[in-house]
Design a protein around this nucleic acid. Sequence first.
DNA 1: AGTAATTTTTAGACTAGTCTAAAAATTTTA
DNA 2: TAAAATTTTTAGACTAGTCTAAAAATTACT
Lengths: 234, 234
Amino acid sequence: MLQKVVYAFNKQRTYMISHTEENYLKAIFKLIEKGKPSASTNGISKKMSTSAASVTDMLKRLSEKKYINYEKYKGVTLTSKGNKVATSLIRKHRLWEVFLVDKLNFAWDEIHDIAEEMEHIQSEELINRLDNFLDHPKFDPHGDPIPDAEGKFTFRHSFPLSELSVEETGTVVGVQESSSPFLQYLDKIGISLGSTIKIIEHFDYDKSTKAVLNNSNTHILSYKVSHNILVQKS
Amino acid sequence: MLQKVVYAFNKQRTYMISHTEENYLKAIFKLIEKGKPSASTNGISKKMSTSAASVTDMLKRLSEKKYINYEKYKGVTLTSKGNKVATSLIRKHRLWEVFLVDKLNFAWDEIHDIAEEMEHIQSEELINRLDNFLDHPKFDPHGDPIPDAEGKFTFRHSFPLSELSVEETGTVVGVQESSSPFLQYLDKIGISLGSTIKIIEHFDYDKSTKAVLNNSNTHILSYKVSHNILVQKS
DNA sequence: AGTAATTTTTAGACTAGTCTAAAAATTTTA
DNA sequence: TAAAATTTTTAGACTAGTCTAAAAATTACT
């Protein structure tokens, strides 16, 4: 009984958000970002590679701590407190990615896992100095927007290459997937941020696309590829 | 029973050293570094701010995993495997400290806690690129040597200012304590790495020292201060 | 609307790390 | 060298995070 009291005291005294809690909040943020009004237990479970039971456990904790709005069997949304944590984590992640590419010359397919660890370093001062050191970048090496210290994202209209019309030319401004195999494939065929792509033809049969890259080579791109490349009309 | 088997399997499959285990190894390294032949449970407990019981628990685990040589009631030493982990951690810590000061312009009293988190980022490639980016520094902002990728430290003969003889002049090459209050005190009286200090007198009574800093101001330094400043004869 | 399928939650177990209190071993001291 | 002091270990509890299996709730489908 005495022990219980002591533990309760320590809990209050040393209260801090854990890496795991942060990761769950980021996962929820990303699920909702994709347009859905709320995140489901199974959706979070998939994104986090944990069991649904673990997710339910964590949702209870996060709700208790006011990071999320949660009612049993209904989906979850972030409170403004939770949103702040998630946005800050994304800011850190993307700034570190810029650091890794711009300063340490990593390739864009090597940085995700490292940034995944670095985003948990707890120091606002550090991140603001880093932001300054990197000249306040607005987008990371995959073209994703970097929120500012207040959590505001720079909006940029872009859409998948698969939706660009025949005869039109687009400029690559981002990718929807950050996996090494995908990015290495883009490297191999010469696509990077800033590349121009002109659509020759969309094939209905398998949704593949014939396109001219950087005014030189012609390639057939599968739907899986064209759908994950984000462009702006140019 | 079935569960037990599954857990054992996962344990093997996902084996990685934890942050906590790393921190204990570093603590043991630092205790032994100070000249003692082995580290005691109480010594580790003090350095880690955990109970002696927790230390004993951890020693069993670390021994099981071959990071330390441990016999009940005897002190512990690091195996070469454990030494490698500790040295690598110190390398990471000190390189990040250089980054924080040289690139992000932090003061030397603000960096310890941040580096304490950054040292756990797991990527040899990252550290080697960082080392390169920083031009292979041999000492960190507190004057401590940075081991190279093979774990070798650059040796430099230095000793506490309190042991410098009267009339002799020394150059500050390091500090034995990294706490903010101590480093800020040094800032205030104008002592940094490279400063010169000439001893005027050592007072036996309280072991304080009268000295001339950088050929200008004369100060009385307490033993606590002079003992934590490392110098070379100049 | 009622059953089937799916999703979510609960129950209970496990690990890594932590603690306090008490027991055991070692070291110090008279 | 025997008692006292100190150190170390054990015993048992607690939290955060994880799991599987089973129960409960919701959604989908005749």
